[in-house]
Design a protein around this nucleic acid. Structure first.
Length: 753
DNA sequence: GGGTTGCCCGTTTTT
DNA sequence: CGGGCAACCC
């Protein structure tokens, strides 16, 4: 056995000697340094597009190649499954099958792995379940209601986030002191945190926060176990360090205490998840935590043009709390290209329409749709673009719309499997006991719960003896028999068949088949897709359940021939040739909600978000704003974002609005309105520095006119050909013709295209 | 127990 | 404007 391994080692050594040259050759000096500085704590500050993933994978390969440690003594942690998958694939390309024995995965997977080995230390049973957010909320809601809290006054979700923040900070209930209570719900949050944890234990369940907290607890109570892992991991690598929360930081610090070889890669300027518990502080104080730490900056950008980097750098320089880093075009690369364009529009529709027109031009120039993205601040903004894209017949995809495993039908199907796998899974039970309708209502479930609580059995086991109405008793017994039968089959049948059987026999499939709503069909397709996923990758039911509870990602293929529309948050880590950044208005971006809650801190995070957005672009970034926007069915007007004023004039091209005026900002007079929505400052055509002149000087609140809703309509003109209506002006309309450009024409010369 | 109506609320969301 | 949810009624 051992000789076989030795032989394999020798072979891979010779093979890798040649390879090593190859992969180190592709790195610049800073990247090389980041790869070769293997010993001790290292912080790699890697700006956008500086080859972060390459450094991480190469470093791993280097460590293994040089035999500094065995593959299974390396730990590499990421935040997303996608990042982990990517790293794993790239690593395998360099070092081959050895890649699979590296501990490579998300923080939560690492936590789970530890917990699966030592669950008993923290009082869990072997087959503990992992709760999703909806489970957590349902649980809290029940607790609140049974403790006389009016859930109209206090949202369970709000309490959940208070608890979650504590967990993010590594605080178990016993560690929370009263002055850490944010005062939510008359300071009762802590009491509920305690109850919540107690309930989790009763249910033999953990939540995502626990996947980090409980391993910490295990290490604290059992130093021997901590010692084991400390010895195990010779080299630790962390991706996206700026996004770690305190619990993750504590875990890392503890694990690294053995070898001291901790390498964190991150970019403080791209920290955009503080509201989820991430602490930029972790990266900012790295050298305080690890005084011997080496700090390596990766500043050579392989992605964008000089103007894009110049605009982004100047913008982010307005932040105070940063380590400082300047992106520059990587040596030997041509940084030439267009200025970042900044454009103002009358309203959101016009903005979307113009973006789509621009996209059509790009298509005509031969740019592939997969190289174009529209990045928005808030989800509702995608709608306008979707509508405009549909009208133009351009295929698109909205990322993060609904994640596969977050869909109702998928969660239901998984709940069925959870219950079949483990009848003690009360939360799964509650989810599907009456779905489809079986005549088991709230009151029956309440009865079950009561019985289950007093006799310390699961809801499932309570069915037999609980004091139920005859009809409910019958329905539940029937349900129970079904589950028992599925359980019997669970061991023999392949997962796919089993699932199919369960979903059919439970009536779940029929529930959607008889549903005549538009989504029903899609839901059935998703269920089919779920079965396909299972057939390929999982043989065992619990393996699948584990995957389903940890994997929230849906394998988005951005590489298809589609325009991508998504939020700025979702765009982190991606890149596109052309990026549209609409909606840069005060109130929307920076978002007012962020601003008035947390002040400057929040403003800086919004600015980082803007920075992330601009740096997604390889060749061209198009920023825009609209003076008027429909929000919640109501028209609102807004000023251009302060971030626009922060862009250096040498890197931007102002379009369709008057130029710089004094030091009040580029667009200070763009949108001066009185309270009737009337423009009283009206830049003239002459002052506008752009080719397609808009009549900014409308004298009344045109946006209130219903007829504008005709914008986007396709029309045909005898002389000019086909085009799209841009604006309705009574007897005339402004039309953007596909080949003749923008013209005002009389309506009577138009016909529907 | 289950369907319907009316009210409230609305940023971002890696696991 | 529109989704989600709780109270309300059959």
């Amino acid at each position: 056995m051992s000789s076989l391994f030795d032989l394999a080692d020798e072979r891979s050594e010779t093979a890798s000697a040649a390879q090593e040259l190859r992969y180190l050759q592709n790195l610049n000096p800073e990247q090389c340094q980041a790869v070769e500085t293997t010993e001790g704590p290292v912080l790699v500050l890697s700006g956008a597009g500086t080859g972060k993933t390459r450094v991480l994978t190469t470093r791993l390969a280097y460590i293994i190649d040089k035999k500094l440690s065995k593959p299974w003594q390396c730990l590499a942690v990421t935040f997303t499954n996608k990042a982990a998958r990517e790293m794993s694939e790239r690593l395998e390309k360099i070092i081959g099958p050895d890649a699979s024995s590296v501990w490579l995965g998300t923080f939560h997977k690492l936590g789970l792995r530890i917990l699966r080995s030592y669950y008993h230390v923290v009082g869990l049973e072997k087959d503990f379940v992992i709760l999703g957010e909806d489970d957590q909320e349902r649980l809290l809601k029940q607790l609140m209601q049974s403790n006389g809290i009016d859930i109209k006054e206090f949202a369970p979700g709000a309490l959940l986030s208070v608890i979650q923040r504590w967990k993010d900070r590594g605080l178990s209930p016993a560690m929370v002191t009263q002055n850490e209570d944010p005062g939510f719900m008359y300071g009762k949050s802590l009491a509920f945190y305690k109850m919540y944890q107690k309930r989790l234990k009763e249910l033999n369940a953990v939540d995502f926060g626990d996947l980090l907290l409980l391993p910490l607890e295990i290490f604290k109570t059992r130093p021997d176990i901590a010692g084991f892992y400390q010895k195990q991991f010779k080299y630790i690598l962390v991706d996206e360090y700026q996004d770690t929360n305190v619990a993750q930081y504590l875990l890392l610090r503890l694990l690294a205490m053995g070898s001291g070889n901790l390498c964190c890669v991150g970019d403080d300027d791209q920290s955009i998840y503080s509201w989820r518990g991430a602490e930029v502080e972790n990266i900012l104080r790295f050298s305080k935590d690890f005084p011997t730490a080496k700090i390596i900056r990766l500043e050579s950008n392989y992605r964008s043009t000089t103007h894009i980097l110049g605009a982004a750098s100047a913008l982010i320089a307005n932040n105070e709390g940063r380590l400082g880093k300047t992106l520059r075009v990587a040596p030997g690369r041509d940084g030439g290209g267009d200025l970042v364009s900044v454009r103002g529009y009358w309203n959101g529709q016009e903005e979307a329409l113009h973006v789509v027109n621009t996209i059509e031009n790009l298509m005509r120039e031969g740019l592939s749709l997969s190289n174009i993205a529209v990045l928005v601040r808030a989800g509702f903004q995608t709608r306008e673009f979707e509508e405009a894209l549909i009208k133009a017949g351009i295929p698109y995809q909205v990322i993060g719309d609904f994640k596969f495993y977050e869909r109702e039908e998928i969660k239901d199907a998984v709940a069925y499997l959870r219950l079949v796998n483990n009848t003690n899974d009360d939360l799964a039970f509650q989810r599907i006991v009456n779905k489809p309708k079986r005549g088991i209502g709230e009151t029956s479930v309440k009865m079950l719960q009561e019985y289950a609580r007093s006799f310390h059995v699961s809801l499932f086991d309570a069915i037999e003896n609980a004091d139920l109405k005859a009809s409910a008793q019958r329905a539940l017994t029937d349900f129970k028999n079904h589950v028992m039968r599925w359980r019997a089959g669970a061991l023999k049948e392949p997962l796919k068949e089993l699932t199919k059987k369960i979903l059919e026999e439970s009536g779940y499939m029929n529930m959607w088949r008889t549903d005549k709503s538009i989504e029903a069909e899609g839901r059935l397709e998703n269920l089919k897709e779920l079965q396909n996923v299972m057939a390929e990758e999982f043989e065992d039911i619990s393996a699948f359940i584990e995957h389903a509870s940890l994997a929230m990602d849906s394998d988005n293929n951005i590489n298809q021939e589609l325009i991508t529309v998504m939020t700025l948050h979702a765009s982190k880590g991606l890149e596109f040739d052309v990026v549209f950044l609409p909606g840069w208005e005060e109130g929307l971006f920076p978002h007012s909600k962020a601003l008035d809650e947390k002040g400057r801190q929040a403003l800086e995070e919004e600015r980082r978000l803007a920075y992330v957005g601009i740096t997604r672009a390889r060749k061209k970034a198009c920023i825009s704003f609209a003076s008027n926007r429909r929000v919640y069915g109501q028209w609102q007007n807004a000023l251009p974002s302060r971030f626009i004023d922060e862009l250096p004039s040498e890197h931007i091209a102002l379009q369709s609005a008057r130029g710089l005026k004094g030091n009040l900002g580029y667009f200070n007079s763009f949108n001066q309105m009185d309270d009737r929505g009337t423009l009283y400052s009206t830049p003239s055509k002459e002052e506008s520095d752009e080719e397609e002149t808009y009549s900014w000087g409308r004298s009344t609140g045109m946006f209130l006119n219903k007829s504008i809703s005709k914008s986007g309509k396709r029309v045909h003109h005898e002389l000019f050909g086909d085009g799209t209506i841009v604006r309705d002006e009574g007897d005339k309309v402004e039309v953007c013709f596909d080949y003749q450009g923008r013209k005002k024409v009389l309506k009577k010369f138009l016909e529907e295209a």
